[in-house]
């Protein structure tokens, strides 16, 4: 494992600090074949300031959801460090730390239909985490709190008695957000929260998430394949490719001065009406079972030179709070 330069965000500002995070799975490429290591996340470091939004953007297989799973404790990291508010979360956890993390971090996932129990009514769905933790003294208090939460996400008492099947996709995602807020978490891990929604509903939910963040001082880790969604929501952005950061920095820098060819490609591909050429990128994402030597992006990069095929570029600073893993960064026009 190569050395990973620390993110430049000052320690005092960081609520979440992740360093050298790695997840390696062992998979059989074929039936009865010898298991081979698959590095879904290969040494990722970043920090999220309290009340800020860190946006993770990448295509399928880039490891973005694996990072989210390790953060909420659904997966255990193979190596690396997760710190949330001065607590360390490693493979072995005290029950107290585990319970604390479950209260403090809440996930909101892509598909609210599969995240909500179809047989329960909205009121029970939203109340469930509170009942598990026993946060309220009596039934009337649970009811009051449920209504308060529904109101917060733009729903009304009329929705409380419905089942998920009686709601639209946007309303279901609002219920999922209300449930995530039930335990007064400080962090929401948003994994493709609007990808399943229609354009007009997407905007409503994104604005709601912004309002909630301002009102409740929430910290967000936002995962999306949609760079426009990430740019709209985030203060900092990390661009992932095959489990590694290609570029990481403040939103303004990454969007306005993208230094990595992959970031430039993603921007052009997301808004092709502005792209000069459609011949943006060759081939497909390589198999993480056989990652290319050198820079993971070099087989698809239009600007790769001999060095890119052999030497793996490390993240290096090219501006305050702006790091890029490319040998050529600074030499290619953004």
């Amino acid at each position: 494992m190569t050395a990973i330069p620390a993110d430049t965000l000052a320690d005092t500002d960081a609520f979440i600090r992740i360093s050298g995070l790695t997840k390696t799975y062992h998979v059989r490429p074929r039936f009865l074949a010898r298991p081979r290591p698959l590095a879904a996340v290969a040494g990722v470091s970043f920090a999220v300031e309290e009340g800020g939004t860190f946006g993770l953007v990448g295509e399928s297989g880039s490891g973005k959801s694996t990072i989210a799973k390790m953060l909420i404790g659904a997966e255990t990291q193979s190596a690396g460090d997760i710190r949330i508010a001065d607590r360390r979360f490693g493979p072995r956890l005290s029950a107290e730390d585990d319970a604390w993390r479950r209260r403090t971090l809440q996930p909101v996932l892509q598909d609210p239909t599969s995240a909500l129990n179809p047989r329960l009514r909205v009121a029970s769905i939203v109340a469930e985490p509170m009942r598990v933790q026993g946060t309220q003294p009596d039934n009337a208090a649970y009811e009051r709190r449920v209504l308060e939460l529904l109101e917060k996400v733009g729903l009304t008492a009329a929705h409380a008695n419905r089942r998920p099947s009686e709601l639209s996709g946007g309303q279901r995602q609002r219920v999922a957000i209300a449930r995530a807020l039930a335990l007064e978490p400080r962090v929401l891990v948003l994994d493709e929260p609007v990808s399943a929604l229609d354009v007009s509903i997407q905007a409503q939910v994104l604005n709601l998430l912004k309002d909630l963040q301002a009102e409740l001082k929430l910290t967000y880790l936002l995962i999306s394949h949609d760079l426009a969604v990430v740019a709209y929501m985030s203060s900092r952005i990390g661009v992932l490719y095959l489990g590694q950061f290609m570029e990481i920095g403040d939103k303004a820098d990454v969007i306005a001065r993208p230094a990595h060819p992959y970031t430039q490609t993603l921007i052009a591909a997301s808004e092709p009406e502005n792209a000069a050429s459609l011949d943006l990128v060759k081939g497909e994402i390589p198999s993480p079972l056989a990652p290319p030597p050198g820079c993971p992006f070099h087989p698809r990069c239009g600007q790769a030179v001999a060095r890119c095929r052999t030497d793996k570029p490390l993240l290096r600073p090219i501006g305050p709070n702006h790091h890029v893993a490319c040998h050529l960064a600074g030499q290619i026009a953004g």
Binding site: V199, A203, Q204, N207, A231, I267
Partner: peptide
Amino acid sequence: KGLIGAVPKIARHAERLAVIPGQP
């Protein structure tokens, strides 16, 4: 018009997206 306004743009630093209220 509402649909075009509701699409987030990468380079446009909108504080808030224009929203079409309600649902289809």
